[in-house]
Design a binder for these strands. Structure first.
Length: 462
RNA sequence: GGCCCCGUCGUCUAGCGGUCAGGAUCCAUGGUUUUCAUCCAUGUUACAGGAGUUCAAUUCUCCUCGGGGUCACCA
């Protein structure tokens, strides 16, 4: 069975990059009828917060990404880690190191001065004497001093590291006894039964250390897929300074989960020329072996296009429901279909759509000057009056076609082109030159509001 | 700096020795439309550079250059 996981450290909100690796992990588990697990990496008590963990969960909920089983909090697993650390100690695969932080940093300085790689020198690796009195100790794992460590990576291929280049006896438990990242990752991934680790490629150089832990503990090493970074426009790793990287900010901007997820799944992954993926399709088609090797630059042009696509293809009832979040209760509006049909292809986000709706439903009080100049000619008042007269004396005015017929009749009777009536009417109804078809606008507004707006415009400009 | 990864249109990408280097987005132009938007059509733009291997390299190898990541008692 395929078991994947997402393992954020709760130091802040869920950002775009994390969401993408979470999505990849989720999709791969789904595709294989496997498990997608969630683990909160909060071993560093000083840096983590429950609020941050909750924020991440909230984002998952909005996006509809569901994880299996209980959430694993590393901060609650001290005894488990302690027992494995004890095991390594007992087996002689790890040892106590009494070097003080001061000594460690002067060791580093000396190495840097000699232009050597900074690493722990193994002073206590084979220490057999009596432990120094009153000194704190950390626990270090015995790493191989030489030889190659090969990370078999599903996207990068086999990556070979030389032990002497990168390894030293790294700390697996701090002075206060708490375990460190590279240790707990390996322990938890094993205990949780994780078979495939999909994560950012900033973790690639940590992987050899984790392999050291896996091997010391006798665990099977899972498969790795290191996903390239998402860069900002400067080509650097996406950070919190890059503006809207909080996933929930996209909700506020009016993007839907389906648009955001579709956008993200195509960042670093592709399936031929296909651009549009429903959640269903993603689950069927995603495969981590098709992940790109190179980093991508974050740019929301395509997100906007995707978002517009999903909005104009959404059903009116779906949109009406989403719009409730913008204080628009179209569910009870009898002109809902006409309104949404007319406006949904003009909005890139739900927020825009809501603004468009509010705008059209608001009686204009100011009229765009250039529009007046362009459309409100000397004979316009006469034309509008004639049209208004027709509207007021007609009884059944409901459909766009009802209004369209009256516009046509007016134009014919006055022997003028259609534009002679449409242009001033547009300004009268909307206050500007652009907008949806007028017949739809009037059907949405209804007879009384239509007459009112025409009357207002005439009064303001005659 | 050591180690590791990466390098196709501005951006997201297809390509897995022989292609007019394809699609999408963006931008521009034209058409449709009473206007705008949508939609449709058309167009501009890319294999970082240099050596090799080969009958043939975007594709394989090496070097250079460029970019990124990582080197903690953070994750």
């Amino acid at each position: 069975m395929v078991v994947t996981r997402f393992a954020p450290s709760p130091t802040g909100y869920l950002h775009i990059g994390g969401l993408r690796t979470a999505l990849f992990s989720y999709l791969w588990a789904k595709k294989n009828n496997g498990l997608f697990l969630l683990r909160i990496e909060d071993t560093d008590k000083a840096r983590n917060s429950q609020e941050a963990a909750d924020a991440i969960l909230k984002a998952f909920k909005w996006l509809g990404l569901e994880h299996h089983g209980e959430i694993v909090y590393q901060s609650q697993r001290d005894e488990i880690y302690a027992s494995y650390i004890k095991q390594l100690l007992d087996e002689g695969k790890a040892y106590r190191c009494y070097m003080s932080k001061e000594d460690l940093s002067s060791l580093r300085e000396a190495q840097m001065a000699k232009n050597e790689r900074t690493k722990y020198d193994g002073k206590y690796r084979d220490f057999k004497g009596t432990p120094p009195e009153g000194l704190e100790s950390v626990i270090r794992i015995k790493s191989p001093l030489s030889g190659a460590i090969i990370v078999k990576d599903g996207v990068k291929g086999n990556v070979v590291f030389q032990a002497e280049d990168i390894l030293d006896d790294f700390v697996i438990a701090r002075a206060d006894g708490s375990p460190t990242y590279n240790f707990v990752v390996a322990v938890d991934d094993h205990l949780m039964g994780v078979t495939e680790v999909i994560r950012g490629d900033d973790h690639l150089s940590n992987t050899p250390k984790q392999i050291v832990v896996y091997e010391a503990l006798g665990f099977d090493v899972p498969s790795f897929y290191h996903v390239p970074m998402i860069h900002n426009s400067e080509g650097k790793k996406l950070s919190k300074r890059d503006g809207a990287t909080d996933v929930m900010a996209y909700k506020d901007m009016g993007y839907t989960p389906e648009a955001l997820l579709n956008f993200l799944v195509r960042l670093g992954w592709s399936y031929g020329d296909q651009e549009i993926f429903s959640m269903q399709e993603m689950q069927e088609l995603f495969n981590p072996k098709d992940i790109n090797r190179s980093a991508s630059i974050y740019n929301t042009e395509k997100l906007d296009w995707l978002s517009a696509h999903y909005i104009k293809n959404a059903s009116n009832s779906t949109l009406a429901e989403l719009l409730i979040g913008y204080d628009l209760f179209l569910t009870s509006h009898d002109k809902r279909e006409i309104l949404l049909d007319a406006l949904k292809e003009r909005a890139k986000t739900l927020k825009e759509l809501s603004e468009l709706i509010k705008e059209i439903l608001t009686t204009p009080t100011i009229y765009d000057e250039t529009a007046i100049k362009k459309a409100f000619k000397a004979d316009s008042v006469e034309v509008l009056n004639a049209f208004k007269e027709k509207v007021s004396t007609s009884s059944e005015m409901h459909l766009p076609s009802d209004y369209h017929h009256l516009m046509q009749a007016t134009a014919e009777e006055m022997q003028i082109g259609f534009g002679k009536i449409a242009n001033p009417l547009r300004v009268a109804l909307l206050g500007k030159m652009s907008g949806p078809g007028l017949d739809s606008v009037m059907a949405i507004l209804g007879k009384n509001e239509t007459i009112l707006r025409i009357t207002n415009a005439i009064a303001a400009h005659s």
